[in-house]
Amino acid sequence: MSSKYRLDYLDQLESESIHIFREVAGQFEKPALLFSGGKDSITLVHLALKAFRPGKFPFPLVHIDTGHNFQEALDFRDRLADLIGEKLIVRKVEDTIKAKGLTEPKGKFASRNALQTFTLLDTIEEFGFDCCIGGARRDEEKARAKERIFSVRDEFGQWNPKLQRPELWNIYNGKIHKGENVRVFPISNWTELDIWNYIRREKIDLPSIYFSHEREVLEYQGQLVATSEFIQLEENDKVSIKKVRYRTVGDMTCTAAVESNAGNIDDIINEIIATKTSERGETRIDDKVSEAAMEDRKKNGYF
């Protein structure tokens, strides 16, 4: 057969993701798309547009706001939801902390990452979501490398890595009991570089913090953390203004910036090809706690 019937690798990945999105639409009563304003969830939205337009999304966008987010990401989130005319639901960790009397974590980089899970589970219950679509990728982390595309969670949102359903061919089994919930990861098979190449090809807009900008940062154990009201500065801390960009966008308390002059996508892709550090290793302060940090969080309901 002639080569005109060949799909480029990005087209293959795109088609697989669209297929997964449509399986969600076909199998679940009340799905939701977890949307943070980061590049992976922005890519999810782009793929969902391809999967469902000219129809509406069969799910709302849901953001679990820790209160520690970058303002640029929040603004982008609101603008995008507005632009595509889809429903956005925001639930705040702050409110869960107050309502449930949760204890705020302490320390220099007090992260609400773990508390996010409480708000997520409450939100799932509030709306009766039976499926949450997330932008996790298997290349990010070794526990994620093990997770199915349709990942069943029990009533408490817990992942049981030893009892995963076999997932064969392109057949996805999303059948669950009431109260259970499935996390679906349409971009499981994409790598960081695939995402960037796709963003370049599709000309997808991103929040400005992904591109080089000047920012006041604290140098801490080799990582650059943006100064903010959420971080406790001490006397000997080294604070300076640097040209940085973000490789991932999480909370201000647990996401580090990288020094960079890359002001456009081409430059960013060149830097990622040349880099010797992984995405999470370079930018996530929360993964370094133990070898099994992510596995443990997932077992507790984290997405």
Binding site: D139, A143, K146, K162, N189, E291, A292, E295
Partner: peptide, 17 residues
């Protein structure tokens, strides 16, 4: 990728790389 696998030195479930 899983704690149990590292402890036992065996692969139990599929991991994607």
């Amino acid at each position: 990728g899983l704690r149990a696998e590292r402890e036992q030195g065996i692969t139990i479930d599929v991991a994607y790389k």
